[in-house]
Each structure stands twice: as C-alpha cells, then as structure tokens.
Design a protein around this nucleic acid. Structure first.
Lengths: 145, 145
DNA sequence: GGCCGTTACGGCCTCCGTAATCATG
DNA sequence: CATGATTACGGAGGCCGTAACGGCC
C-alpha cells in the first residue's frame, strides 16, 4: 500500500469517477486506473463495483476510506512538523574556546554562522585551559536536545 | 514521503543504528542508508546527526517520530479493516426469480454460492411475472450498501 | 584491524504518459 | 457517435542487493 495510491483512491471516491479525479489531480486517466488496480491487487479485493461506465464503492472500499483519510491527514501534519523545526530552527548556541583560538578563527566562524542563521543567537566564552572549557558543557543527563 | 521509508526510519530510531535495524528488518544496510538519505532529501533536512560511527536524532527527526508512528498504526488498521470485510463478507442475499428459472438454473447457482460463501445466507423468492419481481427490490433511498 | 555507515553500480518493479481498445448511454 | 474506463507499451525513477570505500574505535 502506498500513500500516493491512497490519495488517488480518495480522489476517485470524492469526485465519483476516474475521469473527474484525474482532472482534479492533473494526471492522466490511465495512471489513476492503474493505481486503483495495483491497490486492489495489493489488498486482494475489489474496492469498487464497476457498474456501467462508472464506479461505486464496494464494502472493502468503504472500509478503506476512513483509515486512508486519517493517514493523509497525518502525512500533512508530518510535513508541517518537520518544516517547522527546519525553517525556524531557532535557539541559542554557546561557543567555548581557548583565548588564543577565540581571537582569530572562532570569532570569524561565529560571525559567519550568525549571518547564515539569523534566528540563532551565539555567544563566545573564553577560558585559558582545556579543563575550564570542558566544565562549561553540562553532563548528558542535564541536556535536552 | 513513503510508508516504507517511515518504517525504516522508525526502525533505525528504535534500534539505535542502521546495522541493528537492518538485521531486524532482514534487509541490507545500504538499503536502509539510502532510504534515510532519500527521506532526508525529500524533507530537505537532516533527520539524524552523524556523530562518530553512530546516529542520534536531530530535531527534525524527533518531530517526525510521532506522525510516523501514527501513520504506521493507521496503516495496520487499514489492512485489518479491509481484510475483515474481505474475509468475513457476511450478510444476507435475496434472490428473486421467475418460477421457471427458479426450478433449474437459479437453485443450482444459489447452492454453489452457499458452498463458496458459507457466511452468507441466501433465500429464493418465486414470482410469476417480471413486474412482481421488480417490486421486491426496495428503492435506492432505502438501501444501505 | 574491526566495525559501522556510506557510495557505486546493476537489475527489477513501480509509476506515468500517449495511443489504442472496449463498453455503455 | 460521445463518454468514460481499461489495456498496451515505452521511458524515467525508486528500491534492493552485492561490492567497494571511508571513517572512527
């Protein structure tokens, strides 16, 4: 079973025919017809009764409508959730470095980073020894993500 | 986005690595690796941080776990719902026929049907004229499915 | 060197479109 | 005939496996 097949299946159900559904989806009719066939083959049952030159939902098709709608809704929310964290990606980043590093390379890197990620605030901590730098990062148990 | 990609993604998350997930899914490691890459390309963001020789969830990956689980759950329920109506397919069927038809062919057809579909009860109504047969089928507004 | 993840490549299947066929009103 | 659904067929892309490569312990 494939999400695209479910999308096409629902389009056929809602538009009441392959022809209208294909026009709404901007695809060719044979593509929809083949997709339905594959879906029916996968489910080992007919989803529509072929009556005359039209289609009417078979019992198995009715059983599929609900789950199919829910899956496509969840699909949309999945894209939304990912897009949100991808686009916003806001937060704060702390850069700890030894003093001599912070002078030349680190400051430039941070500057470039801030230009590239304007929604993230950056801060530099200077320390003289490696052990002091290490103390600045909290233990794993206290980190969130 | 593809349901198979989501299944693989969740397997990697839950088993904590491509190697273990591939073993659990009985597929080759490169297939999983490619699947993850394609999913990340589709979503235009990294789902994991590649740290050392392991993978840890990136923010976008965390956002995807919930919807992915829900979609796979719904996928299972969709298969179940379809299988139920396909296998059981219980109900009642009424056969209306003219008297001379009910004698020879119809009775044999019904008998064969009952052998093939033991969960469906069948009944034969005999009538003398076509108009009387037609009266037995309720109007479309009264039919359920 | 061993382990784990990632390309590289070849085969198979799915998906789509165009063209042709069939059935129905 | 006109409409709508279904095959026939060729090309593009996805998925999987085997083989080869790269990077940490």
């Amino acid at each position: 079973m494939d999400l695209r097949q479910l999308e096409y299946f629902l389009a056929v159900v809602e538009h009441g025919g392959v022809h209208r559904a294909a026009a709404a989806l901007r695809v060719a009719q044979p593509s929809l017809s083949q997709s339905l066939r594959r879906l029916e083959r996968d489910l080992q049952t007919d989803l529509f009764h072929r009556v005359g030159r039209g289609l009417v939902l078979a019992p198995a098709g009715e059983a599929l409508v609900g789950p199919a709608r829910q899956m496509l809704r969840t699909l949309g929310s999945a894209y939304d959730a990912v897009r949100e964290v991808r686009d916003l990606e806001a937060g704060r980043i702390d850069v700890a470095a030894l003093a001599d590093l912070s002078a030349d390379p680190a400051a430039i890197w941070v500057a470039q980073f801030r230009v590239a990620n304007p929604r993230v605030s950056a801060r530099i901590e200077e320390r003289g020894a490696v052990s002091q730098v290490a103390e600045l990062v909290p233990p794993a148990s206290a980190r969130s993500a």
